[in-house]
């Protein structure tokens, strides 16, 4: 068991012939991901690392029974690519591209929601289920060891930092999901909690958040209403100044909303164990899993 990506997942890479698409296709294949096809309009009939390339998602899906998509398409065209994947019913659709116009993000997220499809990202490192060696993303696979903790994060390298710390402590991961660093993203922490709650392989959940928006507060409120798994959190940006975008388009304190203090308080009030330092996450998990 796992969340969203399991051993049956068959992936299409949209934008497979670009440098990012080609590089990460090779890396996904090496890790064990079932990448069955790619798309690149005008390059149908060719192949990349032995993966056949099609002009459209419809053709790629028809020929290879694909179930999911990962998108490496420049921001101006990424929304169209996501809508194409949604129209073919691929699920999940992982949008690696960052800095999509917010207006496009909103449209894609709501079209997907109507069809019951999960969008991961935009601006995400993707999703990985170590036990079945399937990653639909760009994360270094070796950092994640298989286990029983579900991990969700708004950031990439900080996730690797925390996952590496967990591995050192002998704690593994059921599925790790990059939620994405853009202001509007598809899968939210609250939805992630619901998925992990229904996953038999998951015994605890880690939420790595950061300044900006109120997704962590919403997740805290969800947990406070009764959540049967222990939750550990880390929030980055306690020293970030208001009004400045801290790297991610979504990491910004606007007025008095989106501060780390507010998120930490909401999480603590909901009974979530909040780590002060990334390395403390593993410690808190060990206690929680006892």
């Amino acid at each position: 068991m796992a969340v969203l990506v399991d051993k049956k997942t068959r992936v299409i890479v949209q934008g497979i012939t670009g440098s990012q698409g080609t590089f990460h296709t090779a890396s996904m294949l090496k890790y064990g991901t079932k990448v069955v096809a790619g798309t690149s309009p005008g390059k149908g009939g060719t192949d990349v690392n032995g993966v056949p390339v099609y002009d459209t998602v419809r053709e790629a899906k028809r020929e290879h029974d694909a179930t999911a998509s990962i998108i490496f398409i420049p921001a101006a065209y990424a929304a169209d690519a996501a809508l194409e994947a949604i129209s073919e019913g691929l699920n999940p659709v992982v949008v690696i591209t960052e800095h999509l116009p917010v207006k496009d993000e909103i449209r894609v997220i709501h079209v997907a929601a109507q069809k019951g499809i999960t969008i991961i990202g935009p601006n995400t490192p993707g999703i990985i289920t170590p036990i079945v060696k399937q990653k639909v993303g760009i994360m270094p696979g070796h950092v994640f060891s298989p286990g029983n903790v579900g991990l969700m994060s708004r950031s990439g390298t900080l996730t690797y930092e925390i996952a590496a710390g967990m591995t050192l402590a002998g704690i593994g991961i059921s599925t790790a999901i990059g939620l994405g660093g853009d202001p509007c993203v598809g899968l939210t922490p609250t939805e992630g909690l619901k998925l992990f709650r229904n996953d038999k392989a998951t015994r605890a959940v880690v939420l790595v958040g950061e300044i900006g928006g109120d997704a962590e507060e919403r997740a805290a409120s969800f947990v406070s209403k009764g959540f049967d798994l222990p939750v550990v959190a880390f929030i980055a940006g306690r020293t970030a100044p208001p009004g400045k975008r801290m790297g991610h388009a979504g990491a910004i304190i606007s007025g008095s909303t989106g501060t780390a203090e507010a998120k930490i308080k909401a999480l603590k009030d909901a009974g979530v164990a909040v780590a002060e330092r990334p390395s403390q996450v593993a410690e808190l998990l060990r206690k929680a899993l006892k």
Partner: peptide
Amino acid sequence: CNGAGLTMATLD
């Protein structure tokens, strides 16, 4: 640093 979250966490 490399990555926005890691950089924020380093500041912290």
